[in-house]
């Protein structure tokens, strides 16, 4: 550092010698974790809503296709097909939600049982 810079450096150093409080990092990380939790929750909901919309779309498309083929919508066969598609979609959604919501606590529980 050039000698002429020393005077500024000295003054700036003397302006504040306080350092951050001891639990600063813990406080930041608490806020960060909260943010991450919230973000995950929002992402989960976004995916759920998208999933539901897709399901409705597929349902509507199936109805339309059935109507094109049979000329009717609510025949026994058509209702059966729609039920099948909806059950498949809803099962996938439930599995996804279950994974998102319970993955962390299950992993924590498993880690508690066997830390290795």
């Amino acid at each position: 550092m050039e000698k002429k810079k020393m005077i500024y450096q000295k003054a700036l150093r003397q302006m504040s010698e306080k350092s951050l409080s001891a639990d600063f990092q813990a406080q930041v990380m608490e806020r960060v974790r909260e943010k991450a939790r919230r973000r995950e929750l929002i992402e989960t909901w976004c995916i759920c809503i998208t999933g539901c919309l897709l399901l409705i779309g597929v349902g509507a498309l199936t109805l339309w296709a059935c109507h094109q083929v049979t000329g009717e919508i609510f025949t026994e066969q058509n209702i059966y097909t729609i039920k099948l598609i909806c059950t498949f979609g809803i099962t996938l959604l439930i599995l996804y939600i279950f994974d998102e919501l319970f993955r962390a606590p299950i992993l924590a529980f498993l880690k508690k049982i066997d830390p290795n």
């Binding site: 000698k3 002429k4 810079k5 020393m6 005077i7 500024y8 000295k10 003054a11 003397q14």
Partner: peptide, 10 residues
């Protein structure tokens, strides 16, 4: 002046 190291100046 920048070379001065007096406490008063700082």
């Amino acid at each position: 002046w920048e070379l001065s190291e007096q406490e008063e100046e700082v």
